[in-house]
Design a protein around this nucleic acid. Structure first.
Lengths: 135, 135
DNA sequence: TTTATTGCAAACCTTTTGCAAACCC
DNA sequence: GGGTTTGCAAAAGGTTTGCAATAAA
């Protein structure tokens, strides 16, 4: 099993059973580069039923093992949680998604919210354009 | 007809016909507060077929009369283009969506892109939390 | 008249759900 | 053993599409 031991443990800790299909999904995830689509994931774990893949991803979201992102076009991808908050650089050309973070940026965002008496819970920032390799 | 004359003219300029259903959709839009859902729009223009509403919205997107936004949960809304670029404050409580803009913020975003050799085409920033009225 | 547009219904896609069988603890 | 989880197939959104009828230019 490629699925990291601590992820499996976290599943158990949160009160879920460690089953073969769930292991298979975790293994498949570790073989894909994040962020991936459900489609890619089901292809990478062909033995697991589609419904189970969806159910497992929802579980992993709740356990904060992955986070779900929705692109501008409405498509959905999952990425393995790095723990840290970050933003995305999405290449319109090749589809590649990179992450970055910037404390100043987050501070400025927080200030914009405060200035408007908005109690910020979360935010998402996606940059679309052309990555270095595609330029 | 409540639909602003210049929007109608723009439709014609872009090479589209000005039809009764399209007028009805434009009128309905002007009666709703932006951003609205397709659901709200079809309710506000009951005489127009659902497919036509979808087709009209796609047209208006291309004509840059409206812009389409996808929320974190994947739901889709449309807002009348103000011309200016802006970001959103989305209340998790009441669903209200406000706009704001901040040149410093945009500059910082642009700088983050440049620093990573990413040629920025567009970006979207959504803040989720609780609006002033809901706090 | 000629071509674009409409409405309807059917098709599509992605995600969810009901349920009996299989499985984990 | 007993409550979870699975897989299948069906259902459920939400959006698109084919096509004959209709309307704009």
């Amino acid at each position: 099993m490629t699925a990291s031991q601590d992820t499996i443990e976290r599943l158990a800790q949160v009160g879920h059973r460690v089953t073969a299909p769930r292991r298979a999904v975790l293994d498949a995830m570790s073989r894909l580069n994040s962020p991936f689509t459900i489609e890619e994931l089901t292809s990478a774990a062909p033995a697991v039923g589609r419904a189970t893949v969806f159910r497992t991803m929802k579980l992993l979201q709740e356990a904060e093992v992955v986070c779900r992102m929705v692109l501008e076009d409405g498509s959905v991808r999952y990425e393995v949680s790095t723990g840290g908050h970050h933003h995305h650089l999405i290449c319109n050309e090749c589809g590649r998604v990179d992450e970055f973070s910037d404390a100043d940026l987050d501070a400025l965002i927080q200030r914009n919210a405060s200035d408007r008496r908005f109690r910020l819970a979360s935010h998402s920032l996606e940059l679309y354009g052309r990555c270095a390799s595609c330029s």
